[in-house]
Structures are given as C-alpha cells and as structure tokens.
Amino acid sequence: MEKTKKRTGSFHLGRAGRQRLHFYLFLLPAVIGFSILTAYPFFSSLIASFTDRLLYYPGDAQFIGLKNYRYLLEFYPKFWPAFKNSLIYAVFNVILTNVIALIAANALTKQFRGTKVFRTLFYIPSILPAVATVIMFAFVFDPSSGLVNSVLLKFGIAREDLPMWLSNSRTALMTLIIISLWGFGGKMVIYIAGLNEIPVSYYEAAELDGASRTVCFFKITMPLVTPSILYNLITAIIAGVQVFTEAYVGANGVSFYVACIYDLAYTGTYQMGVASAMAWLLFVFVAVLVFGNMILSRFYVHYEY
C-alpha cells in the first residue's frame, strides 16, 4: 500500500517529496539555529582552544597545538582546585538533594490533608532566581548580622567560635552546598510523578504477604523509580559541575570551574584560547559522565514502560 503510493508519486513532487519538502520547511528554524548557535561555536571554540587567541584580536591568533591544555593541566594554579570544588559541590548536591527529594516525595505521594500545601512550599524555592536565593542566604549566613549566627549566639556559642560561613574560603564551599539543598523541590516533583506511576496493587499485594513499609520502600518503590533517579542524577551532575551564579555571587575566595572559565575569557587579557580549552575539558568530563551513566544504567535501571 505504502509502496505503491510512493511509486506513483516519484515523478514530480509526489507524496514523499512533498512530505520531505514540508519537513525541511518546518525544520528550518532548527537548521539555522543549530548551525549558528551550536555547530559554529562548537567548532570555533575547538579551534580556538588550539590557538593563543585573545578575544579582541582574532587576527593575531597562532596555532599552538596542545599548549593550552598542557598549561591548564600542569601549570594553571586554579585549574585543579576549581575542578575539585565544582566536583565536590556537584557530588554532594546530587546525593543530598536526591535523598531529601526522594524522602519528601515518598511522604507526599499519598493524598492527605495538606499535601498540596506542603508540595507547594517545598517546590517554590526551586523556581526562584539563583541570584536572589544566594543573596538571601548571604544575609542569613552573614557572620555578624545574619540569622544563623545570631541564633547560635543565643545558644551560647562564643562570638569568636562562630562559623564565618560564606566569608571564609574554608567554609564557603560547604555553605554553598547547604544553600543548594533549599532547591530540592524540583527533583521532589519529578519523584512524585515517578511514584504515582507505580500501581497501588503492588503495595497491596506486598501488604498481604506481610511486608513492612521499609521493605516496601526498598523492594518496590526504589527499583521502580530508578528511571526518575537516573534522569535526576544525570541532569544534576551536569548542572552541578557547571554551577556559576551561586559561585560567582556567593563564594568568597573559592574558585569554581565555570567561574574560572569566566575569569579567563572575559576579564584580564581575555584569553579566549585558554578559556576554550578549559571549556572543552569540561565537555570531555561531562561526556564521560553521561556515557558512563548510560552504560551503568543498563544494570541498575528498571524500565517498565
């Protein structure tokens, strides 16, 4: 049936040809957008990463091979600390927010009085602008006039023992991780959606067999929400290592990966070449994570649909 149609339409612009024409016409915005906004900068930055290009002097760029990469990995003093900090931030953020989100989702999946209120309360922080959130917490954690320290003071902690939170490079990273937990609600909603997919009959059957709630959680809930967990993990890790706003606004003396790229590319001598190389190293890292997760997920993700 399909074949005969195609054959009769093969001369002129038959059905198949018209389909193709229309397909590409509707696709046009994406074709243009992909070429200009993705493909061009993708290759342009790859090329730049092998040159000593400065942002405002594209003509003077010389090909220098892998020197930028070597410089970053061996000599640039901020590279490894920045990578380490971003990674610590990402890992703790991923683990803690996902655990909290899963517990909260588990508590809020069943309908009872107030579910909606709690869901709303937990969710709203995750849609607020990062700048506003960090500035709010900069006040809450302000060493001398913030809420946290003034409460600690009330509890009898000596003024000189009070933590400096964001103002000290040793505690700033930890404080940023604590701040990031405030936005667990976005993940919670995804988990709630995942949990709602699980048929109630599973739990009823388990209950008949005498399974406790804890057993139910680990034997039914956990395996069945692994698709949501996988999605959350991937997106959270990728977003976590790329954290910028929080780091730029809140971190005091702690270097973060993307903030480093920003410093290299857009301040000082505008070293576009080095900055591109640093961005590309991040890309390689993200790609390894994503593919690693894809391979691993075959073993731990339970797909039912």
Partner: peptide, 21 residues
C-alpha cells in the same frame, strides 16, 4: 539534535561572545 543537549553552555558561549562582539 538531541545529542547537543550534552554540550556545556560554556563551550558555546565563548565563541558566541566573540561572534556577538
């Protein structure tokens, strides 16, 4: 097209900045 989601924004942003300049 879906694969392009994986590319970190920074990889593209630097060259876009140069282009916009």
């Amino acid at each position: 097209l879906l694969m392009s989601v994986m590319i970190p924004g920074q990889v593209l942003q630097i060259s876009m900045y140069a282009l916009y300049t």
